[in-house]
Each structure stands twice: as C-alpha cells, then as structure tokens.
Design a protein around this nucleic acid. Sequence first.
RNA 1: GCCGGCAUGGCGGAAUGGUAGACGCAACGGACUUAAAAUCCGUUGGGGAGCGAUCCCCGUGCGGGUUCGAGUCCCGCUGCCGGUACCA
Length: 865
Amino acid sequence: MEQSWPLFLKAMSDAPRKSFPFDEFEPRWQVEWEKTRAFRTPNPGDADFDASKPKYYVLDMFPYPSGNGLHVGHPEGYTATDIIGRYKRMNGFNVLHPMGWDAFGLPAEQYAIKTGQHPRTTTERNVANFTAQLKRLGFAYDWDREVNTTDPGYFKWTQWIFLKLYNSYVGDDGKAHPISELEAKGLSREEIDAKRLAYVSSAPVNWCPELGTVLANEEVVDGKSEVGGFPVERRPMRQWMLRITAYAQRLIDELDGLDWPESIKLLQRNWIGRSEGAHVTFKVGESDVTVFTTRPDTLFGATYMVLAPEHPLLAQITTADQLAAVEAYQKSVASKSDLERTELAKEKSGVFTGAYAINPVNEEKIPIWIADYVLMGYGTGAIMAVPAHDERDFEFAKKFELPIKQVVQPPEGKDWQGFTDDGVAVNSGFLDGLTTPEAKKKIAAWLEEKGLGRGTTNYKLRDWLFSRQRYWGEPFPIVWEDGNHRSIPESELPLLPPDLDDFKPTGTPEPPLSKATDWVNYSATAKRELNTMPQWAGSCWYYLRYCDAKNPNRFISEEAERYWMGGGKPGGVDLYVGGTEHAVLHLLYARFWHKVLFDLGYVSTPEPFQRLVNQGLILGEDGQKMSKSRGNVINPDDVVAEYGADALRLYEMFMGPLEQVKPWSMNGVEGVYRFLARVWRLVMEQNQEGEWSLSSVLADVPPDKKLNKALHETIKKCGEDIEKLSFNTAISQMMVCTNAFTAAEKKPIAAVCTFLRVLSPFAPHLAEELNDRLRAAYPQFAAKGSIAHEPWPQFDPEALIVDEVEVVIQVNGKLRDKLTVPAGIAKDEMEKLALASPRAQEFIAGLTVRKVIVVPGKLVNIVAN
RNA sequence: GCCGGCAUGGCGGAAUGGUAGACGCAACGGACUUAAAAUCCGUUGGGGAGCGAUCCCCGUGCGGGUUCGAGUCCCGCUGCCGGUACCA
C-alpha cells in the first residue's frame, strides 16, 4: 500500500483532473458557431440586414501568417476587440469584426528560396494554421469576410488602386485629380509623368544585396535591413515612387480630428517633420545654388557653404586642382554603406571644392565644401553654414578651421559660440537689434523683395519607394514600350504573377520576374514592369475590403462603404487595435491611400481609422522581451490545452491595462482559471464518479439585497469598463460578484443567468455552455438561443441604492473615526455627528475648530488648531 | 543628444483631489481527508503599544509647492523601458 502512493501521485500530476470540462465544451461551441455562422454580419442589401441599427466597426491589425504561428501578443489585441464587438452586438449594434491575412512578404519568399517550395504553398499552410489557432480562441469573427492579400480576387483591387494613383495628380487645391484633366489641358507626356502620384525615379535607393531588393527608408534600421539585418548600400536605380509628400500637410493637419493616442500623433508629426524656413539663392560664378535654412536670420553669419556629395552642380563648379580630392571623397561616400556612414558619423568629414559663393546679403565670398553631413534628399542638398549658431556647422568649422562669426546675442551668461536658440541679431546690418522671430520675418521679406529667396516649408517625409525586386508581391499593372510606361487596361486585372520554379534573386538589381521570359513579353513591342509592390500595399486598404469582401465588381460597394465607414466622423473604422510598431509606416501609408481615394470620390471619409489603441507588449515571465534565445516564449496553444481558451482570453485581459507593457505569469493564468471554475461550480456540481450535473443549490428565488446590489453594480461597471477598454477592472468586478454568489446559500437562477450574459463577451464558451445547461431545467430564465445574441442586461438603479453609508471623519486631514449614517443625511447633520464623535473630540480637545468640510455621504474633515 | 512612456505591498495591479493597496497571485494558519491534490474559511504594507477588543506613528521613486485634504494637480530632480538620430 505504502509503495503504491508515489505511483498514484505521479499519475495524478501527469494528468491533473480539470476543474471544469472546458476541453470538452470549448471545441463543441466552436463547431456550433461555425456551423450556424453565428457571427455572420449582414451587409446593406442583404435580406436580413437591419438598417435601423447603428454600426460599429472594430478592427484588428491583421497578422502576417508566419511559420511560427500565433504568439501570446496576438490574442491580447484580438480578445480586446472581441469583447468590444460582442458587447456592442449585445447593445444593438451591427458589428463588423473581421479577420484576414497580410500574406505577401519576404519570409515566405526566403523560405521558398531555401526549400524550393512555392511561397503560395507555405502561405496557405501558415494561413490554415493561424486560422485553426484563432478559431480555438473563440473569436466572434465573421469568417465570410476573410481577406487574403495574396488572393487574386483581393490584389486585383490593390492593383486597381495603384492605377488610380498612377492616373492621378495633386492639383493646386491640394487634392488628387484624374490625370485626364491634364491631358485635356494638352500637357505633354513628360509633363504629365512628372505629376503622377505614382511615378518613376532613379534617385539613389537603399539596395540590399543579400535580400536582392531595394528597401524603403523605413525598412532600413541602423543602416541594416529591418528584415534579416543585412547591410544596405545606396545606389541609383530606376524605381516606382508614390508621391506621399504631396499629402504631407494634410497628413499632419487631419490628425487633429482623430481619437488616437497623442504619442502616436506626435510620432507621425515628427516623422513627417515639417519645418519652416527659407530658400536663399547664392551666386556661384555664373550659376546659382539655392540652400534651405530654418534660420535665415543668421544669413550674415554664413561663413561657408556645404553641398551634399551627390549635388549635381559639383561637376560644374569644382576647380581643377580640387577635382581629384572631390571625386575621391564622392567615391568614398558612395561606396560606404549607410551603416558605415553612421558609424563614422561622430567625426565630421568633407572636402573643399575650390569654388566660392557670394553671400547675397553682404557680398562676402564664402568657400564651398562638400560633406556627407549634408544629405541630398533633404531640402535642396545644400546649406549655408553658420558655425556660430549651428552645432553641426560649429563642429565642422572647428575641425577644418573655418571662420566662426557671431550674429546672435544669447541671453546673459550664455556663450554665443554654438548657441542655437533664439536671441537678438548682432553683426547683421539691418537686422541688428531684432529678436530671432522678428529677424526671420524681416530677412524673408527682404529676400523676396530682392528676388533672392522666399519663405518655404520643408518636410522630412520623402516620397514612398514603392517597388521591390521580389517575386512574392503584387505585379505592377504597367508595361514599357519605347522607353515609356503605360498602364494596362483595368479589364486585364488581376495581373497574376507568373509561375516560377526558381525564386532566387538574380544577384543583380534585375527582379526575379525577369526569369519568366514568356510572361515578360506583353506584346511584340511592349514588356511588363518586373518590379513588385511592397508588403505595405495590401495592408493599405484591407479595412475597406472587409466591408464588402467578395464583391467582384468593385473594391467596395458605395453602399457598404457609406454604411460601415460612415458615421459622421473623419475616420470610418470605429476602433482599431494593434501594436505600436505600425505607428508610422502602416498607419501613414493607409491614411495616404485613403485620402487619395477620398479625393477621387471612392470613399466618403477623409481618414480610415477614427479611434486607435495600441496594445502593450507582453513580456516573458522574467520581465524580458519574449524570444527564442531567452527561452521565455509562451505558446498560446499550450495555455489553451492546459487551461482553456476562456482562461487565456481572460488572463490576457486581466494582466493589466491593455495599453501597458506587462510580464506574463502562469500563476496569474491559474488565478483566472480558478475564477472560471468557481463560476462553473455556481451552476454545476460533481458527484463521486466525477460526473457533472446541475447544482442542487440553484433555486428560483430572488437574490437577497446584498447579492442583488453586487449583481447590478457588476452590470453597470462592466459596461462602463468595456467602453473604456478597462478590461482588468471589469474582470475584478466579476470576481467580486462571483464571490458574492458563492457566499449565498441558495443560488438565485435569474441572477446567475444575468451574470452569465455579462461574462459572455469575456468567456464566451463557458457562458454559452452554462446557459445551455440551465436552459434545459429553467427555460424561463436562460437565453433561448446563443447567449451572444442576447441583449446586454440593464442595471437597476434602485438596486444600487443603499440605506446606510459609512462616512469618514478626519481631523486636520487625518482619518480619526468612521460612522455609519443614513444614506440621505443632511450636511449639517453630518457635521454635528462628526463633531460629537468621541474619537474626533479626543483630537480636537484644546484646539479651536476653524472650519469643517463636509463631503455629503463621504467624509467630514474638521480643521482645528 | 532629442522625443515619448512608466515608477504604488513579496508579485501583477486598483483608487471622479476625499478611508491607499479593490481584484488576483504568492505566503501563512485552519476545515475537509488515513494522507495528499482540489475545494472552502481566515490572516497578510512597515514599525510600535496592549492580555484583549483596539489604538498610535510611518508609508505610493526623490526634493519642494498648491490645498481643509495629494498616489492623483504644479515646479525641480532620479531611475527604468521604448522610439529616434547629422533633416540644416
């Protein structure tokens, strides 16, 4: 007997008995929901569409279906939106809550290169895996609206939108117009091509030899590719660009009407990087060089000029004796990768060109240098250097012993050398004595009058490099003939990529599509564009496609767009939840496309996303970022297997505020699991054999006053907290309520059923299962169909009213006594009781009462000294 | 450097300017059990006084301030986390 115990214990620990049979009923409900299409959302025009209901569009950032499957970060945002969506449905909204796949992208292609498997095969497999994982979590998605960016029925419209960009330009009104307007005006092909929103450029780009593609600036991190961390070098190549800079100002201004976190708005504003300044033109021999400066007031202090090493005028102005040095410098900069350039950036470098410019304000001859601290891509690629009042110029001037001339007087006690803030102009002729803002205004007017310059606004934002030398992306609906590009007819969309066996990069900038020799030839004389679109393309408009996912005739019907994206606010999507990693790129690109579609009349709102919420990162149990190398990764599948989907959902919401960074804790999962088990045992009891049946302490009785109050407080607080996305406090309130139920000897059935409805958005399987079991015995109380389609319960204000309240008595702000008084007690009555309190008396003895503050029903503070 | 965010028990966290620490975890004690698991009940910020019911003092990163009253508002720091980097 004694020897058999350890064996027995071992068996127990290997297969611990579940506290409630979630493993049995969770999959059953998932099948049931799928079978009955429980969360299908009818569209305007459908027979069962109810136009009288308000809409609520709640959106998750759709995932890239990676081979690793879901991580615990995914269900965090997804559960939050699921709760909101279910709650809104219970409150009478038509809820659009869809899911899809951002399935083009480099990892599948690299896997294809390694294994020879077609990216479509791996993508399909990964999507199937993700789908199964998501379905195991019980999300109320309308799977009929699933979209996949790699589906020809989807990317047909991605290509279509590209053609809209290609065939549009931004007019003087700052809005997109069809290019046909320019044709009507008789502009030449060159003039038109120079205005398109999608245009061809051969500016230097970020070329990544390892990946065999160019990358957008945003995809280069620390001079290395964001994907894979490979070196990136700059080289000029012919590329497709999108003219997002034409929308820079609107992308800043129209943030104002959005309910986004201020920090994200700021991030976007900084990324766009508006700065006010002036263009100033300097004479260089026979030519002109224009510089951009934000400090035109310091023009008198310009002691030299710096051009970017790529500046086109260099060939012309460099003197013979400096030519070798300049060319050597240009070469050294060009061959340097961005990484090397930034690594060496601590030390300024540059070369004198031998040329001089004339400072227009005082006719002074100043030397022209080239240096890589001046970037060709910003402003005019040329600066006037004012070393006295610019840190970078100051450093450069010190290193190369260039003159430093004070033109701004700082406030008392500050050194003028390297002073970059506002002050008073000195040594500046007609500007002397003016404050910096005044001087800026005056010099701008002066420059304009003399025709030497004018006030300008500049943006850091660059045009969006839109082409990639990849296979696994949308092909461009463009062909080339006689060196000119033109669009293919819309009727030829979708343009499918060719089938390739070999996905390897060519090792040259020639894209892999060049290997499809038949496909390449559009006609005897025209060849197809070989680049593909970046992964961002598909995610720029997917939220629109969800509204009308299967429409073969239009990217979204007007009716569906007006209903789901309407609502009288600037943004159409009511709530968008996702990670901060997309704070600039995805959100900026999507806003840009949306504005173009808005200008052209294809959508009815200027912004895509009205309310944005960023979920916080989930850290490992060690408080570190989850990573394979640290071995602290939590797999949601394991959690579901051990504790169930409801427990995972609930735990992710109970961890803390949605937007906060927070560490995982398996003990915490146990905690919410125990809570769910307590709810289960409110309704169910277990016999000796371990079989569950309806609890014998359930009774058709009204709840006592205390329990009823707890219940109605829970209805009220949970509703309010869901609206605020404060799920953690909503759950704690449900725990309080459950504890109140547990304390009751008889469990009142009606109250239990009401509680289950409140619980149902959080733990839908458990709520559904218990409701189902209750219905068999008590059909008059339980929901008739799915509990998900029940209305959210109304709380009874009467139930919240209490007869007596506890008030606090303070003396000089310190808690000294507590009294229980009738709820509606008058102020002066409270004051009298407080002053009469023996404990208060003790503390005010010998003091003079100066003042008594009474907060009705809450506290009395006696001020005495 | 610059820009954001955060800072409350042993831990995750809760607190319209009004009883700091709800709720959960962990820990401890008890009930049930031959024993254990599970479950249920109770205690649990620190220090001190008392046989005890109780009571006092201190306490929300640090230093000031506003207020009858500050975790919460204002000013000045410190630390950690995230983003960004020659943008003229």
